[in-house]
């Protein structure tokens, strides 16, 4: 079975390389999150085992947007959508110090490396297109997985249930859930 789903526990042994999904970072940062303990503990065990952790510009993009929404809701009591943000771009400036701080701390985490791809790499796009159509993931999630596979990363840490039923013929991947 090429894809193994592992529910994280203190006895979990991780593979050497793990792509970190955005939700793990955000939930580990926020102690009011309902999954704070699980997310922070998973992070702790990944670091303790010396696992090489990978993120991408997609993850950073999602951190910025989700953090903006979270901060706006918590400080104003109303939800922020991108239509409103486009009409009121000054909102970004209001919360930029906190977003910068979060970004800096993510990049300072032990063993964290950025992965990317050549935007002109047609092979990468075609492989991601295969994931998108065969696994029926959302486009963004397909790109997360496409990067994981393009960089030969063996693990994927997430709380997102959309990655529970992957098949990925010919590729060995362990999905760590929290």
């Amino acid at each position: 079975m090429p894809v193994t789903v592992v529910n994280f526990s203190p006895t979990t042994d991780f593979v050497d390389t793990v792509y970190v999904d955005t939700n793990l970072i955000i939930n580990a940062r926020n102690r009011a999150s309902t999954t704070y303990k699980q997310a922070a503990s998973l992070f702790g065990y990944l670091i303790s085992q010396g696992t090489n952790l990978f993120i991408s510009s997609l993850v950073i993009d999602e951190i910025w947007w989700s953090t903006l929404r979270i901060l706006y809701r918590n400080f104003t009591g109303t939800d922020l959508n991108h239509y409103y943000l486009k009409r009121h771009p000054a909102i970004i400036g209001r919360y930029s110090p906190l977003i910068k701080k979060t970004t800096t701390k993510v990049l300072r985490l032990p063993n964290v490396q950025m992965v990317g791809y050549d935007p002109n790499n047609v092979g990468f796009i075609n492989n991601t297109l295969d994931i998108f159509t065969s696994e029926q993931l959302a486009p963004r999630d397909s790109f997360h997985l496409g990067l994981t596979m393009a960089c030969n990363i063996q693990g994927f840490a997430t709380g997102d249930g959309d990655f529970d039923n992957l098949t990925l013929p010919g590729y060995d991947l362990t999905v760590y859930k929290y």
């Binding site: 955005t22 939700n23 955000i26 939930n27 580990a28 940062r29 926020n30 102690r31 009011a32 999150s33 309902t34 999954t35 704070y36 922070a40 992070f43 702790g44 993009d61 999602e62 947007w65 989700s66 929404r69 979270i70 901060l71 809701r73 918590n74 991108h82 906190l98 979060t102 701390k105 993510v106 300072r108 985490l109 959302a138 963004r140 997102d160």
Partner: peptide, 17 residues
């Protein structure tokens, strides 16, 4: 890094922009 912020998280906070 962990737990520095204390905000509620909603599932749709991760919806892509």
């Amino acid at each position: 890094f962990i737990g520095e912020d204390n905000f509620e998280i909603h599932p749709d906070d991760f919806d892509v922009f």
